[in-house]
Design a protein around this nucleic acid. Sequence first.
DNA 1: GCACTCTTGACACAAATCGAAACAACCATG
DNA 2: CATGGTTGTTTCGATTTGTGTCAAGAGTGC
Lengths: 237, 237
Amino acid sequence: MLHTALVLDDDTESATRVADCLRDVGFALVDPVAGSDVAEAVKQDGVNICIVGHRAMSRDGYEIVRDLRDRSPAGIVMLNDSSEEIDVVLALEMGADDYMVKPVRPREFCARIRTILRRTVVTPPNVDGARPVPDGFLRRVDDLEICGVLRLVSVAGRELSLTDSEFDVLMVLAAQTNRVLSREQIIASVKGEGHAITDRLVDGIISRLRRKLFAGETGFKRIRTVHGRGYMLVEGV
Amino acid sequence: MLHTALVLDDDTESATRVADCLRDVGFALVDPVAGSDVAEAVKQDGVNICIVGHRAMSRDGYEIVRDLRDRSPAGIVMLNDSSEEIDVVLALEMGADDYMVKPVRPREFCARIRTILRRTVVTPPNVDGARPVPDGFLRRVDDLEICGVLRLVSVAGRELSLTDSEFDVLMVLAAQTNRVLSREQIIASVKGEGHAITDRLVDGIISRLRRKLFAGETGFKRIRTVHGRGYMLVEGV
DNA sequence: GCACTCTTGACACAAATCGAAACAACCATG
DNA sequence: CATGGTTGTTTCGATTTGTGTCAAGAGTGC
């Protein structure tokens, strides 16, 4: 249910616009690390979808798309100012799953993203028996370890049992540490969009999480409340 | 690889234009039979991709798209004169894989078709994304061995006898380990679609499976329940 | 600082979901 | 037609989810 996205675009205006769209509909965003191997990072972080501008990380966007496609099954969307046929065709042939002309229309953008995800199989089919062990989807936040695939959590080595909704919320927070997430965003990430649920449910789950995770700990609150805005999982105290 | 396409559009000018494109790049075209059940025909003829106009076969194109998506894994492209955001979003939410505004540009059109086909796995009636199961195949999930042909199962070398329905459900779970499958998906995979059976039957079978397979095991649950969503067979603890 | 308002934490409780077992219907077999 | 095995439904207790409430806390204007 929780999807992770990566936005790469030197056009910062478009990048923030797109990032906001994605966050609103419940995506966790990964920060692009300049100079790093993008495809490798995408694999590492279990990114489901990449948005690439026609120039990104001071490189040619098309090149990045090809690179990503060669080494990752993630969905790829190319953004560009140009609506020329040649540019569209080139992007798609490099391996993009869709091509949109800026400025994107938010609702269409989200709908197209969802369409791609519908077709994206996270683990590529692998017929000959043994599939690779899911080492990915392991998130570490200080001494908190979360395995997204097996849905296991441990704090300081001590393993503990969370309910499914507790786990889902923790996952969302852990995907975006040191960043405030609104209750709406958290619910959207966990339930999908347009679910009729009270905001306050999040409070309840957070309350239970705090007790289970950081029961004995004194002083610092690692899940911090930001009054009027939401919650944040603090990393690197 | 020969692909088969079906063009449905009351706008004959667009239809022929599109059909020509497809033929040029090597598609076999299926003739639409007026009044027939489109989704059924698509299945029958092994169609890989459907092009649907906003009016087709004297019906509303959006309706056709939804119908197709519900009952076929084929790629679907919607064509329309309108470039309104609302129309795009609607089409995609009905299940279209792409939406293009007429008149289509041939090279872009073909590139987009190819992009869809890249993502379209033609897995026969099965949970979507499930890996194709070769005959005579032996699936291994940790110390769990399943022979699909002889319908035998063993855990840690110890062989045990399952009933047919237990075996079927185990097969479905084993085809997609570490991924949550809904009760609907499980029932659909085992019985075929549209079978009038209680969701809860799955619970019963899972319960019996757990007892037979992992009777003595302590601690970790290898068939995991995800509250409100379904079940998951965990691999690689 | 003080009064006021809105937000949050924590708990209690209703509703939904799940696990396991009991039970009825079905089916093949002898 | 009795038997044994399997399938699918029902039931009940246990767990989890989601709502309501109220006291405590945080922000704001004075």
